[in-house]
Design a protein around this nucleic acid. Structure first.
Lengths: 106, 106
DNA sequence: TTGACATGATACCTTTTGGTATTCAATTAA
DNA sequence: TTAATTGAATACCAAAAGGTATCATGTCAA
């Protein structure tokens, strides 16, 4: 799928999808398992997973009749790279953001 | 405005708005100046600026009959904080993302 | 003071999005 | 083998998103 940056940003724009990413960060899950965690149908969860997959944020592995959904850490790179663009503008006016980023490496 | 994290993610989901943020990172601009850079009407640009403002990513300063749109670096913090959640999961399986982030402080 | 300029606000339109319900296919287990 | 389980696919719907056109408002300059 093209436009990986756009698809990744779009995938993260929905709160349910961000929650799915957090859940998958701690444990691989099937659609059924994920559906148990949300107040919506399996079909709706499946749609979100498709969007996340288009954004490169998860991968799916077929295993019998189940599909194991797994987080793809590298999928976040395009988003982080976008923020990296602002490196060159991190002067005094933007120093507060620079500090916010550096805190990430606490 | 509440739901700052959601509004910030939503604001960044649109490619035009991401471009606006980049433009404003290098120079404060009025709506008119921004409109010259895009192939859409002033009203459309104004809508994007409202969404960016709701997301806390820009501020507006009235100056005579003009409105100076200015980037708000701290507005990105909620998004970066969200990514920070994954700190605790940066084990071997997620080491590649960890490296991607650390590259930001090259 | 009056006309041009910069923006705000509203109504309206089309497409996308997030969701449901329903049907279909594949796989597992009794 | 057959029934139950897991997921895929499709049609459909309401609401939100992205855009235009149009009109109103405030401000600057001649």
């Amino acid at each position: 799928m093209e436009n990986l940056t756009q698809n990744a940003f779009r995938a993260l724009a929905d709160p349910t999808r961000r929650d799915i990413v957090k859940l998958l960060a701690s444990e691989d899950m099937t659609i059924g398992q994920l559906t148990d965690r949300f107040d919506m149908t399996r079909a709706a969860v499946k749609k979100h997973l498709t969007v996340l997959s288009d954004g490169g944020l998860i991968t799916v592995e077929a295993r019998g009749r189940e599909r194991i959904n797994r987080i793809e850490p590298l999928g976040m790179a395009p988003v982080l790279d976008w923020f990296r663009y602002f490196d060159q503008f991190w002067d005094d006016r933007l120093s507060s953001l620079k500090e916010a980023i550096e805190r990430k490496d606490k």
